[in-house]
């Protein structure tokens, strides 16, 4: 049985696709057979960040409509042969996204994969609610600003009430907070909320902090998930996050301007 992970936020442009690509790549690097699905039908972005846009023949909607088999549409990553991308279509509308169709695709993927990462579109409309509906875990991507925190909060409310797990009355979706585009300097200047502020408002488990980093744009222009850039701070932060998600104890980094004593503020040590 595969574990289904939704990467969600409510607010747009906070780093969901960046995170989906890095996280899926990270799981594959740890040896897990992983698929990552682009639920942003109509926009299509994940394939660019994954660097496989020129190999897209069939897409998620083709599979939903029965115009292609899953096998035909899945793109195997060139760097990791245990990582597969199911791209979104750029042209089609969202009408083909149905609960039954998505469930069928996920069930089929689950037979041959250990993790399925769902890159959710922004907003709370169909694409986003379907991306989360079947999830076991949710990475709630949040920027350290009030509007993003508020939208994440709303998303958490929807996760708690409008998911398959909620409807079946089984153990709820596990929620992980991912604070991205974090800049300790801007926190000090009072231009951004701090880790503590965000955690206090959302009161949920912090999986990790991704610093604001130029390496992210460079990586996505190059079609390389930033986690592969092991020299970059953002790449390292995503690496930490994958390890933490898999149960390793990894201290939090990139939270303080001064790169020493990072733990102090987080844990009041």
């Amino acid at each position: 049985m595969a574990r289904i992970i939704v990467v969600t936020s409510g607010k747009g442009g906070v780093g969901k696709t960046t995170t989906s690509a890095a996280f899926a790549m990270g799981l594959a690097m740890k040896g897990y057979r992983t698929a990552v699905i682009d639920f942003d039908v109509g926009l299509r972005n994940l394939d660019l960040v994954m660097g496989c846009e020129r190999r897209v023949v069939y897409d998620f909607v083709n599979v939903l409509n029965g115009e292609a088999t899953l096998h035909q549409a899945l793109i195997r990553d060139k760097r990791r042969d245990n990582l597969f991308i199911l791209p979104a279509s750029q042209t089609r509308d969202k009408e083909s996204l149905t609960k039954e169709g998505v469930e069928r695709v996920l069930n089929e993927l689950a037979e041959t994969h250990e993790y399925i990462v769902c890159d959710s579109p922004a907003g709370i409309e169909k694409g986003a609610t379907l991306a989360m509906y079947f999830a076991d875990d949710a990475l709630v991507v949040t920027n350290p600003e009030v509007s993003s925190v508020r939208d994440s909060d709303r998303m958490l409310g929807i996760l708690a009430s409008k998911s398959r797990r909620a409807e079946l009355g089984v153990e709820p979706i596990k929620e992980y907070l991912l604070l991205t585009r974090y800049s300790p300097e801007r926190v000090r200047l009072g231009e951004m909320l701090s880790v503590e502020d965000v955690q206090e408002i959302l009161s949920m488990h912090l999986l990790g902090v991704i610093p604001e980093s130029k390496s992210v744009l460079g990586a996505s222009n190059a079609g390389t998930p930033v986690i592969l850039d092991e020299k970059s701070d953002a790449g390292q932060a995503y690496g930490d996050i994958v390890r933490r998600y898999l149960g390793e104890q990894v201290p939090h980094r990139f939270v303080e301007e001064n790169k020493k004593g990072l733990l102090k503020r987080l844990f009041g040590g």
Binding site: D153, R154, L156, G157, I158, A160, S161, L202, S203
Partner: peptide, 8 residues
């Protein structure tokens, strides 16, 4: 016993 979120 769980947080009450925006919109709930």
């Amino acid at each position: 016993d769980h947080p009450v979120r925006s919109g709930q």
